[in-house]
Design a protein around this nucleic acid. Structure first.
Lengths: 232, 232
DNA sequence: TGACATTAGTGACAATTTGTTACTAATTCG
DNA sequence: CGAATTAGTAACAAATTGTCACTAATGTCA
């Protein structure tokens, strides 16, 4: 019904190519690992993040889930967008713009598909510059969100010991935590509940298994922390 | 020199349109205000976020700065990307994908350009659904970053009183803060330094003016806070 | 002029949270 | 069996944070 008038602001006329690039993270052998896909022969780098163009009408998260499944064999436990990337840095498929997504998945019993392999975050092979930037951004985002969202629980099986959980936090934060303090904080957060199962892991006292089961909490309401530039 | 071989993974072939949509925020009359641009006659909504397609080769931040300047008359003090948006929600220019950017600017003495106007965040006019989503995301991002990055200082003039600063934090956090605690925390953060100027603001004791001048700090190294789902 | 309202800035103490030590418990290994 | 190993916790010390009550410097107005 409404008339078509020339807009004051010019509409977006330029067409560009878009890729979804996924950083799949999983704990593996005491470190965080990234899933990389073998590149086509003749590519400049031998490995790349799993990526693809979104299908028409497909949401970013759906595309990221599909891409992860194609490389890993199963869907990830959590997806989160980490931003759009368009700097001059080269993309393996020469996409003009990339949307970076981080995917978390618990340690897999199964291997990834033949064309993909896990690499420790601290020992990545050469990647296309834009992929390198997306990996860096993804790890930063994960570290920042670790105590505002239940990320850590997505990197564990449905039941886990408190030592397992602490290990994930140490992996993500990159530093050791104190056992008693960690458990006390967890206690007062009402995020987990005990199951009646115990797991005997080789030697030492068996550990009780817990599950992620967040309950209502009295809001904390603290003052400002000015956690600016926390270095060292 | 390297040969061109057909890649295993299909390259991104589909072309799409891209817009940069900017949420310009500024404190205004005791609340946070957003800068909106008057829409072209015949548009479905009368107001929209300032937006445009990026120029060829132009970085997101540069585009956002240019777009802000076109609506506000001056460049913003800080820009931060808040993510890519591609859900079915309608964009005023029918862009397939939007990159949302939040821009912060101190309270302006000057009015924005004739085609733009400030609206309180709590009383926005109807916006295209995708713009609405970008505004919501931008405010969430700003609230989350407020104590990890010097956002608050970008919403103030170069010199300001500690009461001004506390007011910005209260605006951003949406709750009152305690004066003595706020100042003590600020003290130990080494983020501001006093000038030798004082400002008399109507009645009451004059306040000393400070400037943002972050200095080195011993890293805090706290344990995990599990600040999950802090509600109420 | 001088009381008082108003805003800035701070000292001191209480309440709470966090860091740490040192213990007890339950298991495997030899 | 005792030593080694991992889980789990009590108790205290140290640090941080919440709060109150105060002092300071101005404008207002009878």
């Amino acid at each position: 019904m409404r008339e078509r008038l020339p807009p004051l602001v010019k509409p977006a006329t330029r067409k560009i190519t878009l890729a979804i690039d996924v950083v799949v993270l999983s704990p593996r052998a005491e470190t965080l690992a990234v899933l990389l896909a073998r590149s086509a022969p003749g590519s400049r780098e031998r490995w790349s993040l799993p990526w693809d163009a979104p299908l028409p009408g497909e949401a970013f998260e759906d595309a990221a889930s599909r891409i992860t499944e194609a490389a890993l064999g199963s869907a990830p436990a959590l997806l989160e967008q980490v931003g759009a990337f368009a700097d001059a840095r080269r993309h393996p498929g020469d996409a003009d713009v990339s949307v970076g997504v981080v995917a978390l998945t618990p340690p897999a019993e199964l291997s990834p598909l033949a064309s993909a392999e896990w690499f420790s975050l601290s020992a990545l092979p050469p990647l296309a510059p834009r992929h390198r930037a997306i990996v860096d951004r993804a790890t930063t985002v994960v570290r920042q969100r670790v105590d505002q969202s239940p990320l850590a629980f997505r990197l564990l099986p449905p039941t886990f010991t408190l030592s397992d959980l602490q290990g994930i936090y140490e992996l993500l934060l990159g530093r050791r935590l104190h056992k008693a303090s960690f458990r006390r904080a967890l206690q007062s957060s009402y995020l987990v509940e005990p199951t009646d199962e115990w797991r005997s892991e080789g030697r030492g006292r068996p550990a009780q298994l817990f599950r992620y089961a967040p309950r209502k909490r009295r809001g904390a309401r603290r003052g400002v922390r000015f956690d600016l530039f926390t270095e060292g």
